[in-house]
Computed example of a mutant assay.
Amino acid sequence: MARRFSQFWTFLASDRLGWARLLAALIGVTIVSNWLQWPLKTRQAFPFFWVLVAIWGVWRLASWQRVEDWLGRVNLDDTGAWRTTRADRIRRLGPLVILCCGLEPLLRLSWELWLIGDLLRVAVSLSIAAGLLATMVSYAWRTWRSRVELRIDATGVFAPSWRRTYAWDEIAFAVQPSRSRELRLALTDEAAEAAGRGALLTVALPPTGLFPDEALAALRAFRPELPIRPWISNGVVLPIRGATDLPDVGKVETYG
């Protein structure tokens, strides 16, 4: 039961559900906004659509390889770990636009509610505005600071979503890359059972600036004999679309 709950929580916290969480937040904002503006004769309309279009446009632009190269595609620190790239930090700052666009209407709404004497809604509106401002400052600070996104060294492989370093003897093989830009590793049965999680480890590579072949090359730099195989589910080898050949071991020195 604990293992299933851990897997479910990992799924909910994954970056793949980022847009779902954003949509849920927008629905909540709409409900609260309608309640706050209920006594007013005229209601403010938040430009959700255009804000989302702007965020999507910036996200897509920062995802282009040319833009990544221009901003600095790889951000290696002194220890050889890959830290958050500038392009990924710009992508993550997208939700900050919504917070900024929501603060000014909240303050104006608080003033209008004050004029009609609705102190309850004034208190709620100002509380939300204060929380929004604190969230903006905290989010901007945490997002713009780079962190270690992937570390591959003699001790093993580390990613923040895994919350620990997996030693080389815990890794059975690397999964052959598919079309998605991510690194996938398969744990041994003993390591997966000891960690209380599934055998498949996945880390998104856009924050590192790496592509799957480069990540595999970095693995091979420290563990040349590490197998690279397709992922098998329920005894069936899943088809790999766009799979590439294994990287040349002689070319991996720059990724170590």
Rank of each mutant, 00 (worst) to 15 (best):
M1A: 12
D15E: 11
R16F: 10
R16L: 13
R21Y: 13
L22Y: 07
L23Y: 00
V29S: 08
V32C: 07
L36P: 00
L36V: 01
K41N: 10
Q44G: 14
F46S: 07
F48I: 13
W56T: 14
G72A: 05
V74R: 15
T84P: 03
R86G: 07
G94C: 06
V97G: 05
I98W: 08
L99I: 14
L99T: 14
P105D: 06
L109T: 00
L119N: 12
R121M: 03
R121G: 03
V124W: 12
S127E: 09
A129V: 01
T135C: 15
R142Q: 14
L150G: 03
I152Y: 00
V157D: 05
P160H: 02
R163L: 09
A167P: 10
F173G: 00
P177Q: 05
S178I: 11
R184Q: 12
L185A: 01
L185V: 04
A186W: 05
A191D: 01
A194E: 12
A194M: 09
A199N: 13
T208I: 03
G209D: 03
P212M: 08
R220V: 12
F222L: 03
P227E: 08
N234K: 12
N234E: 14
V236C: 06
I240H: 13
R241W: 15
V252D: 11
G256D: 15
G256L: 14
G256V: 09
